[in-house]
Nucleic acid binder design. Sequence first.
DNA 1: GCGATTTGACCTCA
DNA 2: TGAGGTCAAATCGC
Length: 329
Amino acid sequence: MATAAPADIISLILHGCKLAREVESSLANLQPEALGNSLNDIIGVFEAARDRLNAGKEYHFSSYPSGPMFHQQSEGLKEWLIRRSTTIPCTSSAMEMYHRTPTFEVGGDPLHERVKEIIGTKQMPLRAAVCDVQAMDTGGASKAAASSSSQRLKRRKDAGDKRTMRVPVPTGGNTEIPPDDGFGWRKYGQKEILGSKFPRAYFRCTHQKLYQCPAKKQVQRLDDDPLTYEVTYRGEHTCYMSATAPIISSVPQATLVSAPEVSLGGSSSSGSGMVVTTAVGVGSSSRHEFQYPVADMAYALFNSGSTNTSDSMELIFTHQRQRGDTLDQ
DNA sequence: GCGATTTGACCTCA
DNA sequence: TGAGGTCAAATCGC
């Protein structure tokens, strides 16, 4: 029995993830007090989401903007969250950000107005002063798998299908290691770029051959901020849509979402990006491990089946604290 | 042995 | 024509 449209909750969680990314991006610069305030902001947003969630525990994704039950959709919640999270303009003002929250409509009402209403009751100013994540979506995402015969001909014609964001270099480790976003990437080239001090690295999906996954990304350190990578994604992952995909297909299916085990497995090898290693399954025989980018945690929250979402929140912020500890070292 | 990375050469396009 | 993107052989590491 659906008691609440999930879209506003999605937007809340999305907003929380956005704030979390900002904190992550600014970890090296934030003073402890500011960091604490930012965390409070994030907690407040997630609490609002949790409250809404608990207000209507039974709901379906049928009102979800891109269609019903993302498990079966070519573009599911995970993909949608990732896309939305990379298309929201980044600002330094909370209210401005609220105004810029996704503006898709629910029942004829601008959703962001509802989000503002919900969040506004929490009175949560955003104190993260600097937004290091610049998201850009030039639109026109093409899902066409690369044609082996014409791939080279189309090389620059698909330049419009790209999303660029900035992420901090891994802390406490080798800054040469590119940020991990939860997907498996294989480096296929590196190029000195004219006018840039740092070379640009080219990656494609590890499963490109196996699943014809067209996803690629370019990673380049900024000249004016060597502690920041500019990551440009091209194409979209289709590997996890395959029923036999070894990693991403482990995204819990409907039969598993009743009692997944969400555990903090630590950051990925590069130690960057808000990535949570998650074990999902019922019983040891069906356990699978996969890694979540930050937006995926929203998915985990939705599907945890737990009435105590604060536990999941604790995982998120424990991870943040661990990263903070790493920074301190 | 296999998969990932490196790196010089090659190709495309603005 | 040159910058950017990709290929593929050589090399590395597990």
